[in-house]
Amino acid sequence: MSIQHFRVALIPFFAAFCLPVFAHPETLVKVKDAEDQLGARVGYIELDLNSGKILESFRPEERFPMMSTFKVLLCGAVLSRVDAGQEQLGRRIHYSQNDLVEYSPVTEKHLTDGMTVRELCSAAITMSDNTAANLLLTTIGGPKELTAFLHNMGDHVTRLDRWEPELNEAIPNDERDTTMPAAMATTLRKLLTGELLTLASRQQLIDWMEADKVAGPLLRSALPAGWFIADKSGAGERGSRGIIAALGPDGKPSRIVVIYTTGSQATMDERNRQIAEIGASLIKHW
């Protein structure tokens, strides 16, 4: 067993022997301040990774656009098919120029040779490549099948209805392509620590998230040296922004954090800054 596999296998073990965790309302004060600064709703939840206990939450059962955070769930569904012998990570998928959609920095470079399922998941999570996500959605049967996968996990809230990039439209009061912070946090925890996926697939999923290259201005910008984070960000229309993450000190994750916002007129930089400040408060009061 590799060191990384050992780390993920012992996530519940280490967490069980940690000192009790206590909620700190100071972080919620910052979440509410972010709402004021952005002029928009902000949803927040913080779960203990081992027990699933909610440590703090704000608007945990209000719907927010998922945006690209759905790509972690998508690759979880792909990995479940791999575990069941219905898919192979090494299978190569070929596609054409007509398949390319807006923001496809990886797939646009491989029109000639195609990409493997493993490479597509890596591109979808680490670079948020939209064509990679659409190609992977095709392998599982489309958005409705991802929703069905989530329902089978016990998540009857999260739903995907459309493809990239239309799913980022974020129309107010439109339930399409949305989740709730509580539902997303619980589902992410199941994917990373539950028995739904094999140990190898859980490790692969967290490795992809740990290698995320496009979430630097968010929670990662607030992390002290030595902290662990595996995350996936999302951005959408109407001032929408979000991030889902597993993080913790001492090089291992111990909490799940989900943050979503929508309806702001603020710039992307300002949305990023507010999420980073929430992260800084979380870490300060850990």
Rank of each mutant, 00 (worst) to 15 (best):
I54C: 05
M153Y: 11
V82F: 15
R41F: 15
G279R: 08
R41Q: 14
L191P: 14
R59C: 05
G242S: 09
L146E: 14
K232Y: 02
L218V: 10
G234Q: 05
G251C: 11
E35M: 08
K252L: 09
H110P: 01
R91W: 04
P65D: 08
A183E: 07
L100N: 06
E175H: 12
P253M: 04
D129K: 00
E61P: 05
K30D: 15
T187M: 11
K71S: 03
A215S: 05
Q88T: 14
D155T: 09
D129L: 00
D83Y: 03
I244W: 11
E237L: 10
G90L: 06
A183C: 14
E164L: 01
T27S: 01
F149A: 09
E119Y: 15
E195W: 00
R271M: 07
G248Q: 03
E164I: 01
Q88E: 09
N173Q: 12
V214T: 14
Y44L: 09
I283N: 07
V117H: 15
L282M: 08
K71H: 01
A133C: 07
A84F: 07
L160R: 04
D99H: 15
P143H: 07
L136P: 09
L79C: 15
K71V: 04
E166T: 11
P25T: 06
M268C: 06
N272C: 01
D129W: 00
V157N: 06
A230P: 02
D83E: 10
L223C: 11
W286G: 04
A246G: 05
E56P: 12
V117P: 13
P217D: 13
E61S: 04
H24Q: 07
G239S: 13
R59G: 07
T178V: 10
V214K: 14
A84W: 07
P143F: 01
F58Q: 00
A200G: 14
H156L: 06
E108H: 00
D269I: 13
A185E: 14
E119G: 02
G226Q: 12
A222Q: 04
E119A: 14
R176P: 08
P143A: 08
I125M: 02
T147N: 10
K109C: 15
E87R: 07
P249Q: 09
L150I: 15
V257F: 05
A84N: 08
A280L: 04
W227V: 04
R81Q: 08
G154S: 13
G114H: 01
L49K: 05
R271K: 06
E46M: 13
H94D: 08
S51H: 01
V106A: 13
A77Y: 00
K32A: 07
R92D: 01
R202G: 08
L120D: 01
K144W: 13
R273L: 07
F228P: 08
T138P: 03
R220A: 03
G248E: 13
L191W: 00
L219H: 08
P105M: 12
R41N: 04
V101C: 05
G248M: 07
I256D: 01
I244H: 12
G239W: 14
V42Q: 04
L150R: 14
D113L: 00
A200V: 11
L197E: 13
H110N: 00
I275M: 12
L199P: 09
E145H: 05
E270C: 12
E210H: 09
E169S: 09
S128T: 06
L192G: 11
D33L: 03
K232G: 13
R220I: 04
S254P: 06
V82I: 11
G76H: 01
A124L: 10
L191Y: 11
A133N: 03
E56H: 12
S68D: 00
L89A: 13
W227S: 07
M66C: 00
M184K: 08
E166R: 10
E61L: 04
G234W: 00
E210P: 14
A148T: 13
Q88A: 14
R273D: 06
P25L: 10
P105A: 08
A230M: 12
L223T: 05
V258S: 09
D174P: 03
I278N: 13
I229T: 06
S80E: 09
E61A: 09
T178N: 15
P25Q: 12
V117D: 12
W208R: 08
D48F: 02
M66V: 01
D207Q: 10
Q265K: 06
L47S: 08
E169N: 04
L28W: 15
T193V: 08
D155C: 03
E35R: 10
R176V: 12
Y103S: 12
A225L: 05
K71A: 10
L199K: 05
V31Y: 06
I283T: 12
W208Q: 05
N50F: 13
L49R: 02
E277R: 10
G248R: 04
L136T: 12
L188N: 02
A266L: 10
R81V: 05
S264Y: 13
Y44R: 01
L74F: 05
D207F: 08
F58C: 00
V214D: 14
T126H: 05
I278W: 10
A124T: 15
F149H: 12
I125H: 00
N134L: 04
R273F: 13
A182P: 08
E46Y: 12
S221M: 13
M268R: 03
G236F: 03
M180V: 09
H156Y: 05
D48M: 08
M153H: 10
M184W: 05
I259F: 14
R81K: 04
Y103P: 02
V258C: 12
M268E: 05
W227K: 03
D269P: 04
V31G: 05
I140H: 11
E62I: 00
P217W: 04
E62D: 00
A222G: 11
V117K: 00
G216N: 12
E145A: 10
A235M: 01
E26Y: 15
A215W: 01
E145Y: 15
I171D: 02
K144I: 03
T187D: 13
R41L: 11
Y44F: 07
Q88K: 03
M66D: 00
G194V: 08
P217I: 14
R273V: 13
T138G: 06
E195F: 01
P172T: 12
P217G: 12
A183T: 07
K252N: 05
S128C: 01
T158H: 04
A185V: 04
D177V: 10
E145S: 05
W286Y: 11
P25W: 09
E56Y: 13
R41V: 13
P249E: 02
E61N: 05
V42F: 03
M184D: 12
Y44K: 00
L247R: 10
L38C: 11
E277H: 12
Q204M: 08
P181K: 01
N50M: 07
S201L: 12
T139I: 10
P217Q: 11
T116D: 08
R59L: 06
A123K: 15
V101N: 10
C121T: 08
I259C: 12
K30Y: 14
R238H: 06
E108W: 00
G242F: 02
L111S: 10
S80V: 03
L223Y: 14
A124D: 14
Q97D: 08
E169Q: 05
K32D: 05
M184L: 04
L218M: 05
G216C: 12
D177F: 13
H151R: 04
Q203H: 09
V106R: 13
P253D: 03
H94M: 06
M115Y: 05
S96R: 00
T262M: 15
S201P: 12
G226A: 08
E175W: 14
A245M: 14
G234S: 04
S68Q: 00
P249K: 06
E270W: 14
A183Y: 06
Q86S: 13
L192S: 10
F228S: 05
W208Y: 01
A230N: 13
T178W: 12
V31R: 11
L49M: 05
P181M: 01
C75D: 15
L197V: 07
L223R: 09
Q203E: 12
L160E: 05
A215V: 06
I229S: 03
D207A: 12
A235C: 05
A124W: 02
S96V: 00
T193A: 08
I256Q: 08
D36G: 05
W208N: 06
G43A: 04
I93M: 12
D161C: 09
D177R: 09
A276Q: 04
P224W: 05
T69R: 00
S51C: 01
I125V: 01
T193W: 08
L47M: 11
I275N: 15
R202W: 07
G39S: 02
A40E: 08
I171A: 02
N50H: 03
G242Q: 11
A77M: 00
A40T: 10
T112S: 11
D113S: 00
I244L: 13
T198N: 14
D48E: 09
P60H: 11
R92P: 02
L49N: 01
K109L: 13
G239C: 12
N134H: 10
R189V: 14
I93Y: 01
G236Q: 03
A230F: 12
K213S: 03
L38T: 01
Y103R: 08
V106S: 14
A245I: 09
R238L: 07
R41S: 13
N152M: 15
T112M: 15
A246E: 10
D113H: 00
S281F: 01
F58I: 00
T116E: 08
D174H: 03
H156T: 10
R59V: 06
